[in-house]
Design a protein around this nucleic acid. Structure first.
Lengths: 150, 150
DNA sequence: ATTCATGCAAATCGTTTGCAACCCA
DNA sequence: TGGGTTGCAAACGATTTGCATGAAT
């Protein structure tokens, strides 16, 4: 976490940007809620607890900036909201999402068996894959059992 | 295509809906542009050529209806627009998209090697996968070559 | 001191909705 | 005939933007 802060300040400087208390506050919230998929509004509400005077626009701008710096991942679970999570770029370890079409809950899968697919794509399509996003739609255990009973 | 029309009428009837000239017109446009990823606005413009009096709201409503009937696939290429293509539900043959982060062009991959992954997910996560969406981000051949020269 | 960042409110833009007129079954 | 459907315009909601003020280097 300390690491992450130092990186943040340096990465900002590299691009000619400044480290403000607002940007720090947004980063802190994201770090404190790792593994969650917070919407912009939720992040805004959380930041306001310690930083009541922050504006929603600033949160939007900060998240946009962090996305361009690949410091966060922007997620889309088809509910009309943009969601974010910190990107601990461990390069070789992606996770994908299981979205229940019944209750809307979202779980994560840690597997990543797409490397071989990416090689195939390079060969056949001459397309260099840098990243991928996978969403699985289906039924979580609860909803599956509930539907079975009917 | 004739098949598709008949199906459309029947599927609508099953749900208590009517086949209107507007709905037919939207379907026609989608059939005439198979393989393309038309945005709602683009579909609207195309439909207007033969059906100048149609309203944008009707196109939105029709697309929403067709999506719920699984007659179309809703696509999202992160450009802020909803895009659609007809869903020829051949069940066992999905395609995924290659999105160039440089020029924004979109190509398709026909492979589908995710079946084994889905089985693993069922076992480990107790999540029944019904569908999945995969997006690959990277560089198309043109952009890759262009960047190499720099 | 300079330059970037902020907060606020207004503007944008894709999409949805209320409603009276309309048309398919 | 009657209930779904349409077109229009207004409403919406998430996100962006203009601008004067404020803060970081």
């Amino acid at each position: 976490m300390q690491d992450n802060n130092i990186n943040f300040r340096e990465q900002l400087k590299e691009r000619g940007y400044k480290l403000t208390s607002q940007r720090q506050a947004v980063l802190d919230v994201l770090l404190d809620h790792e593994g969650q998929h917070l919407s912009t509004e939720e992040i805004y509400e959380l930041v306001k607890r310690k930083n009541p005077d922050i504006g929603l626009a600033t949160v939007y701008r900060t998240l946009l900036l962090m996305d361009s710096m690949e410091l966060v991942y922007k997620l889309d679970f088809d509910d009309g909201l943009s969601r974010y999570e910190i990107n601990k770029h461990t390069e070789d370890h992606r996770h994908h999402h299981l979205i229940c079409t019944q209750c809307g809950c979202v779980a994560e899968v840690e597997e990543d068996l797409l490397e071989s697919l990416e090689e195939q794509i390079l060969r056949k399509n001459k397309f260099v894959v840098k990243d991928h996003r996978v969403k699985f739609y289906g039924l979580c255990e609860k909803c599956f059992n509930k539907l079975k009973q009917l």
